[in-house]
């Protein structure tokens, strides 16, 4: 009896350990690998007028032969059509400029919050987070009524006599950047803030004591030490902006050619799910590869023997 109980308990412990180790893998499998496999599967299929609108990859032909048809056409289309490349480059450009703008605006803000008196920090952080309580779409829509020719901003500027005729702000590249900066700024500020509050300010005093002027001390000490926060914030802005669809669609001009819109057209307009899937995977590859490389490089630098 006791032996049996002990055995059971042992099995339970094994089970618990298995669950502990398995949970993250299960998560990864369920929410990354499985969808990835589905997308990969679709990307190798051909379009069909059916439900779902693509062909099956395998088919049993007689005599127990499994026939697998892999269509690589989609990937070759993606890489040979300069329109996709142009959209991809444009997306990268928008994401890059957007990230730099977020950085230029967000860094001083994060720094100011991190160095503000304790009782103010909570309030200031709340002000950063508060807009999240409203739907993202509603907030982007609000920008339409601010930026449009008859909108708040033009009324204000004309009322102040700064301009005579309404400025064309909406449906321009500028409007996209305004939308991107507005929507993604908190993603830049929060990691930077978390990093900067941990900064030991006696390091800046030490730098000053060693003859370093404040701006140079910032460049030599604060900036390198906040690099992890800066990288985290930039990635949190850059990656989603590359695939951004709503902001360019609502605020952008007719010439905004972003990969998100291309995906939309392939998926909805052309009903070409396989091509859309191939495009997604290529995007993923082109985005992830540099980051993986960067991380490898970083690890190598850190692992360097002293």
């Amino acid at each position: 009896m006791h032996k049996l109980l002990a055995k059971l308990r042992l099995r339970d412990r094994h089970l618990a350990r298995l669950v502990n180790i398995g949970a993250p893998y299960l998560w990864l499998g369920l929410f990354f690998l499985l969808p990835f496999a589905i997308v990969l599967h679709i990307s190798l299929a051909e379009t069909a007028l059916a439900q779902p609108p693509y062909t099956s990859l395998w088919e049993w032909v007689d005599d127990g032969i499994l026939q697998i048809r892999l269509n690589l056409q989609n990937f070759s289309t993606v890489f040979h059509d300069e329109l996709y490349l142009a959209a991809f480059l444009n997306s990268l450009g928008v994401a890059l400029v957007g990230t730099v703008l977020c950085l230029l605006i967000g860094y001083p803000m994060a720094y100011a919050i991190a160095t503000a008196p304790e009782r103010w920090r909570v309030v200031l952080l709340m002000l950063i987070i508060l807009p999240f309580w409203t739907s993202f779409l509603i907030r982007v829509y609000a920008w339409i009524s601010i930026l449009k020719p008859n909108g708040l901003l033009n009324h204000l500027l004309m009322g102040l006599g700064v301009i005579d005729a309404p400025l064309t702000l909406l449906h321009t590249q500028t409007a996209i950047y305004i939308g991107v900066v507005y929507s993604y700024l908190p993603f830049m500020i929060l990691p930077l803030y978390a990093n900067l509050t941990r900064l030991d300010f006696s390091l800046l005093e030490a730098a000053a004591d060693l003859g370093c002027r404040p701006f140079k001390a910032f460049l030599k000490v604060t900036l390198p030490l906040s690099l992890p926060g800066l990288v985290a914030g930039s990635m949190l802005v850059f990656i989603p902006v590359v695939g951004e669809f709503v902001i360019p669609d609502l605020l952008g001009g007719p010439d905004n050619l972003m990969i998100g819109n291309m995906l939309w057209t392939e998926f909805f307009g052309n009903k070409d799910w396989p091509l859309a899937a191939a495009l997604t995977l290529s995007l993923l590859g082109l985005l992830v590869a540099p980051f993986v490389l960067m991380q490898r490089l970083e690890r190598r630098i850190e692992g360097e023997p002293s």
Partner: peptide, 27 residues
């Protein structure tokens, strides 16, 4: 502080964590 002909050793030492010993001394 940066103009004074004075140097201070901090209680926490305030060594720059991202620099080597050599770089700290050279700073």
């Amino acid at each position: 502080a940066y103009s004074r002909p004075v140097n201070m050793m901090f209680q926490s030492y305030a060594l720059f964590p991202h620099m080597t010993v050599e770089q700290n001394v050279e700073f």
